[in-house]
Amino acid sequence: MVKISFFTSFFKNIAFPVGAFLLAMLLWLFVVSGDQYTMMLDLPIEARNLNSQKTYLEEVPGYASVILKGKGRDLFKSYVLQNYSDIKLVLDLDGISQEYEFILNDYFEKNPRKVVIPPSHNVSFIEVVYPNRINIRLDEVMEKKVPIISNIQSLVKDGYLQIGNTQFEPDSLIIIGPKVELNKINEVHTAKDTLFNLSKSNRGTIDLISQNRLIKFSLKKINYFLDVQQISERIIVDIPVKVINKVRGIRVFPSPQTVSLTVVGGVNKIAEIKPNDISVIVDFNSWKLEKNFYTPKIAVPFDILNWKDLSPRTIELGVARESK
């Protein structure tokens, strides 16, 4: 324990300050010196004159590592200001229709003006270290309208339910990118999110997820709406009974001609329901001479939770031939 404490104290109180002082001295000598040095810097790459009908099939690297030469203070200045000055490498894409490979050192040797270094920097370009080449691949630019798919999970409180699916405004968006990549995309998904203990309708904004950086979205976020309502019941009366698959020349009389039942669902949703929104159907194909009463099939709107208490439960069918 004593040895460990001694070495820790020595490094903290002596070795570290001495090392920092020596490093500072070397940096000071480098900056004030008038001698010539070389330094490697990462310079941004700017691709220009892309055909308006084309887009990239592969991303162009954002930076290249290059060697610059100059006096110590000028190189230090370039290093400090590299993110704030207009120093960059330019690739001219004029005339490229599909694919072209830039051998960077050969390209900049033939086109020295494509290495943009402001005169105030007083440094000169020597060579590109990495990457030594950039392959440009282009494709026809297209746009496409696709629907938005929800990754939002809603968990409502007991006694409540969500009416319908999550709604988006707008419900679709425009995506733009290379044709070959757009053909693979038929929908766009939201980010994943879970909403807990919902007892009322909920509005919000959520990110859209892009799996391909070459594809651009007309929207980065989307507005959503979840219709959450308290569960309630309502009796619907005077629902008409319909007979399907009637036979020509035969008259069919359902009795009674209307029924009632109880619907279970969101309190606001069931308040909107009208008798004609519910289908009570008897199929005449199931008619038999010795059978008088038939159980109808019930169809309610999809966003109704359930139905019960059909009255009456069966329908009598009266059958007679039409008079000629």
Rank of each mutant, 00 (worst) to 15 (best):
residue 1 M to F: 12
residue 1 M to G: 15
residue 6 F to C: 01
residue 6 F to I: 12
residue 11 F to E: 10
residue 13 N to C: 08
residue 16 F to W: 11
residue 20 A to K: 08
residue 26 L to D: 06
residue 30 F to G: 09
residue 40 M to V: 15
residue 40 M to W: 11
residue 44 P to M: 14
residue 47 A to Y: 08
residue 48 R to D: 10
residue 51 N to E: 15
residue 52 S to K: 12
residue 54 K to G: 08
residue 59 E to W: 01
residue 65 S to F: 08
residue 69 K to S: 13
residue 69 K to H: 04
residue 72 G to P: 03
residue 73 R to D: 08
residue 76 F to L: 11
residue 82 Q to M: 09
residue 85 S to K: 05
residue 90 V to T: 12
residue 92 D to S: 05
residue 92 D to C: 04
residue 101 E to C: 02
residue 102 F to K: 08
residue 116 V to G: 03
residue 119 P to M: 02
residue 120 S to F: 11
residue 124 S to C: 07
residue 132 N to V: 13
residue 138 L to G: 09
residue 141 V to S: 12
residue 144 K to E: 13
residue 144 K to C: 12
residue 145 K to L: 09
residue 147 P to V: 06
residue 163 I to F: 06
residue 165 N to Q: 13
residue 166 T to E: 03
residue 166 T to P: 00
residue 169 E to W: 00
residue 169 E to V: 02
residue 172 S to K: 12
residue 174 I to H: 08
residue 179 K to N: 12
residue 180 V to D: 13
residue 191 A to S: 12
residue 193 D to F: 01
residue 206 I to V: 11
residue 211 Q to F: 09
residue 216 K to F: 00
residue 224 Y to R: 05
residue 231 I to H: 00
residue 238 D to L: 02
residue 242 K to N: 11
residue 246 K to T: 15
residue 249 G to S: 10
residue 250 I to V: 15
residue 254 P to T: 07
residue 267 V to Q: 10
residue 268 N to P: 00
residue 269 K to Q: 10
residue 276 N to S: 11
residue 277 D to Q: 06
residue 290 E to V: 07
residue 296 P to G: 05
residue 299 A to N: 14
residue 303 D to S: 06
residue 303 D to N: 14
residue 306 N to F: 12
residue 311 S to I: 05
residue 315 I to G: 05
residue 316 E to H: 11
residue 316 E to Q: 15
residue 322 E to R: 05
